[in-house]
Amino acid sequence: MKQKIPTVYLIILLFVLCFGLACDLDRWQSSSSRKQDESSGFFSAVLGETQGLIGALLYLKADVYFHRGYYPSIFDNTSGSKGTEMEKTEGHPDEHGHNHEKCEKDYSREPLDWIDRFSRSFYPSVHVHADEIPRGQKEILPWLKLSATFDPHRIENYTVAAFWLRSLGKINEAEEFLRDGLRANPGNPELLFELGKIYKDDRKDITKARNILELSLARWREIAAKEKEPDTFLLQQILVHLAQIERDQKNYPLAIKYFEELKKYSPNPQAIQKQIDEMKEEMSKSAAN
């Protein structure tokens, strides 16, 4: 009994010490995390920096599903690929188009031995993309949504998912998901651009599309002013869509202004100049009448 009393005191002392330490750590953590990110939720509190890693893995999983399991491992050499195929091509296919014959995930090679040759019958060894089978692209979506849940600041999750949702005719879902992205990343020009495209191409609401695309352009300029190498590819896309809207609305001076700016960055300035000339001709014709 005599021995038990000091043990009880020791337990109480340790408990008080742990409780005090926990309170202090909690105060310190809440103040530091508030500084880092106000919008982060449950996953941020539980996982900390790991959530970004999980988000990246889930995004990679979406890319695996896009290639229907035909995916190189870390041991297979691909032709120096950076990023994912989904993001590079499917993210903006209307500007680029996807070349299915020259996919960067092609790692086909001659089998080294009989085991290698034999094993190819038991795993996906034919390269087919998810969008080549009817509604195959829907299988990509859960991974993108999960990735966005873990890492809400990964913009590709929203833009790629919005593209595939639009291709499936799910315009409301695409808009809702992009708005989720904008809530987590207020004023992001890429998300605003995707939203503008929905209003322009799917909802045919030109006024709203113009407003959103102009906001996207303004936000791009704000960010670009702070960066050494701004994302001119996004700028080109915004300008193309804005110029198209103004041209279709017969607002040629503004359309020409956008096309003039686009010409500076475009790999094919002659084609843009041709469009400018056509509009100028149209303007002079209408002035003559």
């Binding site: 229907r68 399991g69 085991i115 019958s121 038991f122």
Partner: peptide
């Protein structure tokens, strides 16, 4: 080691099932 170990990864058909590939040739 490569030629001696049992290649149990060959028995993993999960990718075929998940991505709806056709069944494996029965002789193989």
């Amino acid at each position: 080691i490569y030629f001696s170990i049992p290649h149990i990864e060959l028995f993993d058909f999960r990718n075929l099932l998940v991505h709806n590939y056709p069944a494996v040739a029965w002789n193989k």
